[in-house]
Design a protein around this nucleic acid. Structure first.
Lengths: 246, 246
DNA sequence: CTATGTTAGTTGCACAGTAGCACTAATGTT
DNA sequence: AACATTAGTGCTACTGTGCAACTAACATAG
């Protein structure tokens, strides 16, 4: 029970203890091996938490330079991948006593989708290693630092969930793409096949994409190229895909 | 460009400036007037930001007593309403230079649904006022403190959106309820009528609710009482309601 | 005791979107 | 010219919803 007494001591000078505040980014792309996530290796310095372990890219909020949380996330993304116009959305925040050995900490987590071609991995300032990890295999073994495994799993389930009714997979492709390529991105993320005919009518009737001049040439029938109708905002479908019951 | 030089100075002692960290809660309920949100009045003290203004209930994270962000949110909810088992989900976080005149700040926002009957509003420790505001009318005029209008709008659109495909409105009702009462909650939140027949088949086929012993008696045909099949996790429907045309 | 009003709950039909699958179309290769 | 391969379309069956009419069960007014 708090007393109704004035708390001026605490409130007037704003010097009571504050949590450590970080921003982390879960960056996804699709490679040959399927859905991948970007991880960075923590410095080997034994004074740091989880030396040599793998973690999500991120770090402390720099209150002198970062305008807000999202620009902080964009900065970190750019530092690691060179990409500066990704699909970026906030995932959530994790905070508590135990998640960082250095004390009470809170992290604001963003999740990003980038086309594989755009990423040019860049070793960080501390010469850490940066690498893609296939989401289904190595990640579980990787023993992620902090609570980053939990965060990553939340990001994966958010992505898997949203794929069912949004255009998010389009952000895993370059600007121009064919409908087959788009369908492939959906299938990789959902880890199941989609009926071609239903996919096409659904996508085309939702105004997600606009056909552009040009065809994808190849060893067989050329395919129409498309681009996102409005790259700045994802499309939400009215329904979900149904499970094919084999 | 950062130099690859060691930043041990900064990183080893953890005394660089940190953002102010708060937790705010958007608490919804349904009253006669429709969807309402709980606001608290800020102290009249001119040394405080937005003296006398209305704001979302919340406050600084107390790193000596709060185990984590969610328990901090639960504590604040309990303090204002007396409710301790609400539907509670994280909405997101807002952080930046300008949102609080006292400096760089970040808030972790939760949103809660509670049955109107359960709430017993309690004046806070600082003798602030606490009140329900109908979401559609007074809120816009209320000139909310900080960026709380933006946060509230995000909460409303999250709620409106999720209502279309989840069982969230059930958490606005007491433990036992009839299907008509449940439908009414949906209609209040969505602000449009739903087809009775479609609603019933949808709800009953989704295993959202379980019939229990007892009927709601009244001046006309008694109605079967139901409870949530699993109160601990919301149900997601496979589809969305369609707009009734006309 | 019956008629009436009101809300609970059901039934049947029309419509819309998808799954499933077969079909046609267009290219390079053999 | 036949074939393999991928692009793209057309048709049917099924499912869930919108819509509207129907039946069911109570309280109350006369």
């Amino acid at each position: 029970m708090k007393k109704p007494a004035k708390q001026l001591l605490k409130k007037d000078r704003m010097d009571f203890p504050r949590p450590l505040t970080t921003v982390d980014v879960v960056i996804f792309t699709v490679l040959e091996s399927g859905l991948n996530v970007l991880l960075v290796q923590r410095p080997e310095d034994p004074n740091e938490p989880y030396p040599g372990g793998w973690a999500l890219p991120g770090g402390f909020v720099d209150i002198e330079n970062d305008q807000d949380l999202e620009s902080c996330a964009r900065r970190k993304l750019k530092e690691k991948t060179g990409v500066d116009t990704p699909y970026l959305e906030q995932l959530g925040s994790w905070g508590g006593t135990t998640r960082d050995p250095r004390g009470w900490s809170a992290t604001h987590v963003y999740f990003a989708l980038i086309p594989a071609q755009d990423a040019v991995l860049q070793k960080g300032a501390n010469a850490q290693d940066v690498a893609w990890f296939p989401v289904n295999q190595s990640v579980a073994k990787a023993k992620l630092a902090f609570d980053h495994l939990e965060i990553l799993q939340a990001a994966i389930s958010r992505l898997r969930n949203k794929v069912e009714y949004t255009s998010l997979p389009a952000y895993l492709l370059p600007e121009k793409f064919t409908l087959s390529e788009l369908q492939h991105m959906y299938e990789v993320v959902m880890e199941r096949p989609i009926e071609k005919s239903a996919f096409r009518t659904r996508v085309l009737s939702s105004n997600l994409v606009t056909p552009i001049q040009g065809m994808r040439e190849g060893p067989n029938r050329p395919a129409q190229l498309y681009r996102l109708t409005d790259p700045n905002r994802p499309v939400f479908f009215p329904r979900t895909f149904k499970q094919k019951q084999k």
